[in-house]
């Protein structure tokens, strides 16, 4: 589904990703962990199509297509979804209106008829319950004045509405209390099918108790320095990153 080969990327004069290799098959859940500043969000944003990065080498194939050659909206329509680490506030753009526009853009791409306001509302009511979000948020501007936890849950609400094939979750667990974490994890797990895949970026093992990864990768200084099964996350929780960084490069 996703094939990242030798990806090198950075910003003006500064190399951030230094040769990433990662292969994700349908049905899999991959976790990416790593110290602050190692390049996790950069990788996530690059996959979603954020401008401003220079790709100096490598390629990314998504379902056989050159992902890096697609506009952000094309990627989204093709089923790539990024839950942002820091969702941006958009004052003046009503949340319901935004969500309906996004859903209908997807539907149009899939050759489906647009949902009218009534049909959309009932779809949204169903999803919002799943994430235990307050309906009044939908009347507000996108993310404006949302609490940290509300922002994160709203990201997963969007994921539930857009039904992506490849979801990239960038620290969706940070800022969530234990109960909210469970709600979010349940939301994410519901969207897991044999045809979809998830790339979960996190600092904490506790998320991976609920969203169980098939693979765990450690990103350090722009490279994946170690990959393993879910037990690797436990080991990282106990021992930190030092032992990996200091030992010679190895992969599972």
């Amino acid at each position: 589904m996703l094939e990242i080969k030798n990806l090198h990327a950075g910003v003006e004069g500064r190399q951030i990703l230094k040769g990433i290799h990662l292969s994700i098959q349908p049905g899999e859940v991959h976790a990416v962990m790593g110290p602050n500043g190692s390049g996790k969000s950069t990788l996530a944003q690059l996959l979603a199509g954020r401008a401003g990065y220079t790709i100096t080498a490598g390629e990314v194939l998504y379902e056989g297509q050159d992902l890096l050659d697609m506009d952000p909206e094309e990627r989204a329509r093709a089923g790539v979804f990024l839950a942002f680490q820091y969702p941006v506030e958009i004052p003046g753009v009503n949340t319901t209106y935004f969500l309906r526009t996004a859903v209908n853009a997807m539907r149009k791409h899939r050759g489906q008829a647009p949902l009218d306001a009534v049909k959309f509302l009932s779809l949204m009511r169903e999803k919002i319950k799943l994430l235990e979000l307050d309906e009044s948020l939908l009347k507000r501007s996108v993310n404006e004045g949302f609490s940290g936890g509300e922002k994160k849950r709203a990201e997963i609400l969007q994921m539930a509405l857009l039904e992506p094939r490849l979801a990239v979750l960038d620290e969706t667990d940070s800022g969530l209390d234990i109960d909210a974490l469970k709600v979010v994890a349940r939301g994410v797990n519901r969207l897991k099918t044999p045809q979809t895949a998830q790339l979960v970026i996190t600092h904490y093992q506790r998320l991976l108790d609920h969203i169980i990864p098939d693979y765990v990768h450690v990103l350090h200084d722009g490279c994946i320095v170690k990959s393993g099964g879910k037990e690797l996350a436990l080991e990282l929780e106990e021992r930190g990153y030092d032992w990996i960084v200091k030992s010679p490069l190895q992969t599972a």
Binding site: A48, G49, R50, A51, D71, P72, E73, R75, A76, R77, F81, L82, F84, P87, V88, I90, F98, T101, A102, A105, M106, H109, V142, Q158, L162
Partner: peptide
Amino acid sequence: QLFYLQARGIDL
């Protein structure tokens, strides 16, 4: 903000 909207499938 533009990128956020685009990342949800809304064209530029």
